[in-house]
């Protein structure tokens, strides 16, 4: 089983960090993983995308992902280039605080008011963690423990003040109910990993 997840948003929304968190969490759970981020010279507000490919077998993928199972859409400014690579029958996670809708009747669309929820929690910068965690909860692609551990590992020493708010955001995202037809894996990861 191989799962491709494409992230899209604008600079400052945590696309690169949350994508790396998902990738790191999956490696901790024994999956094979590839991650490639893409971002422009402009940091805040510029285009930022990332692709994460996860599998329980060695991956067969190109670094430039051709077709993906899932999209994490934090902002729709640059959504069209991701949209064209999402397969029919896929899943689209939408930050409904900023995006009205995406026109993909052939996909399962999960709307999560990630920015509003993170703001309620006093941590608007952690909105990306709300959305990616809701995705993880809906699909079971990684566990909450792996996500929390990966986030703690990736937040640099000079940003430790954000660990607690990121944790609140991850826990809020995991309030999302599992959606059985979106289950990412046939076999859940075991403590020792799937390998």
């Amino acid at each position: 089983m191989q799962r491709e997840v494409m992230f899209t948003g604008v600079g400052g929304q945590g696309i690169q960090l949350t994508a790396k968190t998902l990738a790191t969490a999956a490696v901790e759970e024994g999956r094979h993983v590839m991650l490639l981020g893409h971002y422009a010279g402009a940091m805040r507000g510029g285009q930022t995308d990332a692709s994460v490919v996860l599998g329980d077998q060695p991956l067969r993928t190109l670094p430039i992902v051709q077709a993906a199972w899932a999209a994490i859409v934090m902002h729709d400014d640059h959504w069209p280039s991701t949209n064209e690579r999402i397969r029919p029958g896929g899943v689209v996670m939408v930050n409904s605080s900023l995006i009205d809708d995406v026109d993909r009747p052939d996909c399962t669309i999960v709307r999560v008011p990630a920015t509003a929820r993170a703001t309620e929690l006093g941590a608007p910068m952690s909105a990306g963690y709300v959305l990616v965690s809701a995705f993880a909860a809906a699909t079971g692609i990684v566990s909450i423990d792996a996500m929390l551990a990966a986030m703690r590992q990736l937040v640099p020493p000079y940003r430790q003040q954000h660990v607690e708010s990121n944790e609140r955001a991850i826990r809020a995202g995991f309030e999302q109910e599992p959606i059985p037809e979106l289950a990412a894996w046939e076999q859940p990861a075991t403590a020792g990993g799937v390998r």
């Binding site: 990738a23 490696v27 999956r31 094979h32 590839m34 991650l35 490639l36």
Partner: peptide, 9 residues
């Protein structure tokens, strides 16, 4: 850049 920047397990 695909060698330098891509992350893999």
């Amino acid at each position: 850049y695909l060698i330098a920047d891509t992350n893999m397990s």
